[in-house]
Design a protein around this nucleic acid. Structure first.
Length: 286
DNA sequence: ACCACAACCTGGCCGC
DNA sequence: TGCGGCCAGGTTGTGG
C-alpha cells in the first residue's frame, strides 16, 4: 500500500509525538515481522509466536532507548536511537504505524506494539502480516542498496537519464525497482507514465531525450502532489493519526478501468506488466 | 540483464 | 449463506 508519499506523510506525523520519547516496552504478536535480528543465520525458521531468541534480542535492544530522529528513505521509515542503532520499518502492503494511548482499544491487526514513556504507544498494524522491522547498527545494512531519492534537490534530469541508459527492460518494472529509484510504487508509476505519455511497456533505452525529461518531471510532480494530498487511500492507508489521504481523488488512470481518459476520453485499459496490474490510456501512451 | 512465477498473508468482492 | 477464485498499494528468491 504505502509508497513514498504515504510513508512521507506518516513520518511527518510521527516526528512530533516520537521525538525524544523512550521505549519502555515492546510487545511482539507476530514473530515474522521481526526481520533483524534473526536467530543466527537461519533464514526461514518455523514460525512460533513471539518468543524466539531474535524477538527477545529485538525487545532487549530497544527498551530504554530514546528516539532521536525519524526520517524516510524510499518506502522505509528510519528511527535513529540514542544507543546509535537504527530501528527501520517497512510497511509493505497493508502496514500502518499509529500513535495511540496505551488504554485505547487494540485492533485485531495490531501485531507489534512499542510502549512509550509518555503513556502512548506506537502500534504496527499489519493486516496481511507482510511488514518488516529491523534493528541494526547501521541503517545502510537495510537501506544502503536503494536508488536515489527522486525528490532530492541533487537528483537532476541528467542523473535520471544516466540511470536509464543501457537498460533494455520495460520502463514500468524499472520504475518499480527500488535499486533504480527509491520510493515509486504501482500507483505513482502508472500516474507518472500517464503524465509523461509513455506506454508502460516501452523499453527504457528507446525513450527519446525529450521523453526522459518529461518522465523525470512527471515522477517528481506525481510524488509531490501525493505528499501535498497526504497520500492515496484506496482501501487501507492511514496516516499516523489514523486519517485517510485524499490523493485518490486526483488519480487519473490508476484503478480507473473503463473510465474516460482525462486527456482524450478514451476508456482506460488495464493490463499486467511485470506481474503488476497496470492502468494506462492506449491512445495517449504510445 | 531480464523475465516469469511463487511465496509471504488476510480480506473484500464476484459469480454460482 | 457458503465456497471457490481472483484481486490487492511490496519485496525476495528461484529458475530459465
Amino acid at each position: 500500500m504505502p509508497e513514498l508519499p504515504e510513508v512521507e506523510t506518516i513520518v511527518r506525523g510521527l516526528r512530533e509525538p516520537l521525538f525524544g520519547r523512550k521505549f519502555t516496552g515492546v510487545r511482539v504478536g507476530w514473530e515474522n515481522l521481526v526481520a533483524r535480528p534473526r536467530p543466527d543465520g537461519s533464514t526461514s525458521s518455523p514460525r512460533r509466536l513471539a518468543e524466539g531468541p531474535a524477538v527477545e534480542e529485538f525487545e532487549r535492544g530497544l527498551v530504554g532507548q530514546r528516539i532521536l530522529d525519524v526520517k524516510r528513505r524510499g518506502k522505509y521509515l528510519v528511527f535513529a536511537l540514542s544507543g546509535g542503532e537504527s530501528l527501520i520499518v517497512h510497511l509493505r502492503m497493508t502496514g500502518r504505524l499509529l500513535i495511540k494511548n496505551c488504554d485505547d482499544e487494540l485492533d485485531k491487526h495490531d501485531h507489534l506494539i512499542f510502549e512509550l514513556d509518555d503513556g502512548r504507544e506506537l502500534r504496527f498494524n499489519n493486516m496481511r502480516k507482510l511488514g518488516r522491522v529491523y534493528l541494526v547498527d547501521d541503517e545502510d545494512e537495510i537501506v544502503g542498496g536503494l536508488g536515489p531519492e527522486p525528490l532530492d534537490d541533487d537528483f537532476a534530469p541528467a542523473d535520471f537519464a544516466a540511470l536509464l541508459s543501457g537498460r533494455r527492460g520495460m520502463i514500468k518494472p524499472l520504475l518499480l525497482n527500488q535499486r533504480f529509484v527509491a520510493g515509486i510504487g504501482n500507483i505513482y508509476a502508472d500516474e507518472a507514465l500517464f503524465a509523461a505519455r509513455i506506454h508502460p511497456e516501452r523499453r527504457a533505452n528507446t525513450l527519446r531525450g525529450e521523453e526522459v525529461k518529461h518522465l523525470y518531471h512527471a515522477i517528481r510532480q506525481v510524488l509531490a502532489q501525493g505528499i501535498q494530498n497526504r497520500g492515496t487511500t484506496l482501501s487501507d492507508y492511514l496516516d499516523a493519526e489514523g486519517r485517510e489521504g485524499r490523493n485518490q481523488e486526483h488519480l487519473r488512470v490508476f484503478r480507473r478501468v473503463g473510465q474516460p481518459c482525462p486527456r482524450c476520453g478514451t476508456p482506460i485499459k488495464r493490463t499486467v506488466v511485470g506481474g503488476r496490474g497496470t492502468y494506462f490510456c492506449l491512445r495517449c501512451q504510445k
